[in-house]
Design a protein around this nucleic acid. Structure first.
Lengths: 261, 261
DNA sequence: GAGTGGATTTCGCAT
DNA sequence: ATGCGAAGTCCACTC
């Protein structure tokens, strides 16, 4: 267990016998640990296709969510695998240790036979961190200016960083029907704050122009639960992926991609 | 080293200090070993996009080909990674161990900071086995009969398992130009034997009909070096993937997929 | 080196 | 559950 930086529980065994390995695996699977097994094995897969891999030394990862992957000495991708939610079984067949992974839909299974375990490691990682993937907000703005259609077909730029009462509007445009569009950009997950900020811009522009104004929140994704507030305030969300922005910036060439922090 | 089933060289260390971990990593990287590091780390990626992952316990794999992947406790895919051929650097920054992975094209880098290593494992897997991915030959034939166009646009079935002098022809059809087409199927990599077999069929049919006959070898892939013989004998190769066959069989419904051996 | 298509794609979000 | 589209996709192959 890991509390306040203390050392986690883990198990590490050199060259365990197949019997011991079986016991270790059963225990780890029941505890939903993160298991690494290095050993000499043979792999068979049957399902959407079939495959066979003869004997050789590989590293097998088994996670607490039921995913399993077999890694050969080279290559980024596992040679055999099974995604999360699959059911794992361990048993011994004569002088071999067998690990089976089954999935229902699609129906497929992966079977590993081991005749020798080089080492066995297991632990229960404590990992509550949030993962954030993004481009910079400035880059997103540049991409949107270069090609407003990435957000919506027919969208055209009117102005950017327009000063209004509450601050600067990221992108100020006109849609295919001639309506004003105010875009608020967020480089990562957009939440309540972004929605309220956008609402302030929309209200300000509405007061100034008196015309119909659309408020669009553009971000890689919307925080779950924020949809309600968005709809309530009459605003819209448009997904804008980092990849898409990078693509546009690369094409436009006005700013070298891969130079941002 | 592994010769004839002997135990491979490997290194396994519980809770190594950051200094020791640095030395172990340098040694393993120089030796191009397969490394597994379990520890508490922070991950930053910059390149095609940017990402940040706060502190947490994860498992890092580093292979001899220079690929690296960071695995969280759940999910099939690594949260951060770098494909093969990237350059790896290890150093210490104050009380942290730093692993950096750089790639030139596209230009991107992954930086890991560790403040604690749970365990360190490395070995040099001996794995010379061949990996074969396939559907059964019968399934391939069924898929081709169901939809000959998966091999070539306009291809139509004339007969299958047609008896000729040397044996049974897998698929006997007519192409968009009205020419006879003889297809020899192989469920995995097709080699010299398959080519010669096909040639015998083509010759036999040529002798029987006297008309122009095309010989097509259909398999997931062609053994490297077999291309020469193929061209020499005036035959063709068409890639036929397991996935495509399974797709057709599933759609046709004549035979339940996932029931083959 | 750039471009194209496939994958046991996986993954997430919509219906 | 099912279907559709995106991905830091990766990877193999062609031009």
């Amino acid at each position: 267990m890991n509390v306040g930086g203390q050392v986690s529980e883990f198990t590490l065994v050199k060259c365990p016998s197949l019997e011991l390995s079986e016991s270790l695996l059963r225990f780890s699977l029941r505890r939903r640990e993160f298991v690494t097994v290095a050993g000499n094995c043979e792999c068979r897969y049957t399902g959407r296709a079939s495959s066979h891999l003869g004997w050789g030394e590989r590293l097998v990862l088994i996670k607490g969510d039921g995913s399993i992957q077999v890694h050969r000495p080279t290559g980024y991708e596992p040679v055999n695998w099974q995604p999360p939610q699959c059911t794992l079984h361990v048993h011994r067949n004569g002088c071999l240790l067998v690990i089976e992974a089954h999935r229902r839909r699609p129906r497929e299974s992966l079977t590993l036979h081991f005749d020798r375990i080089i080492f066995y490691g297991s632990f229960r990682p404590v990992d509550r961190a949030e993962f954030n993937l993004y481009v910079s907000e400035e880059q997103m703005r540049d991409a949107l200016i270069q090609d407003p259609s990435i957000l919506e077909k027919g969208l055209e730029l009117v102005d950017f960083e327009r000063r209004v009462e509450p601050g600067f509007i990221d992108f100020y445009g006109r849609d295919v029907d001639g309506r004003l569009v105010i875009v608020e950009l967020k480089r990562s997950q957009a939440g309540k704050e972004a929605i309220l900020q956008l609402k302030r811009y929309v209200d300000a522009v509405l007061k100034l122009t008196g015309s119909n104004v659309r408020g669009v929140l553009a971000a890689p994704r919307l925080r779950s639960g924020a949809q309600g507030l968005l709809v309530e305030l009459g605003l819209e969300f448009r997904r804008l992926s980092p990849r898409k922005c990078a693509e546009v910036l690369k094409k436009s060439g006005t700013r070298k991609i891969n130079e941002f922090v």
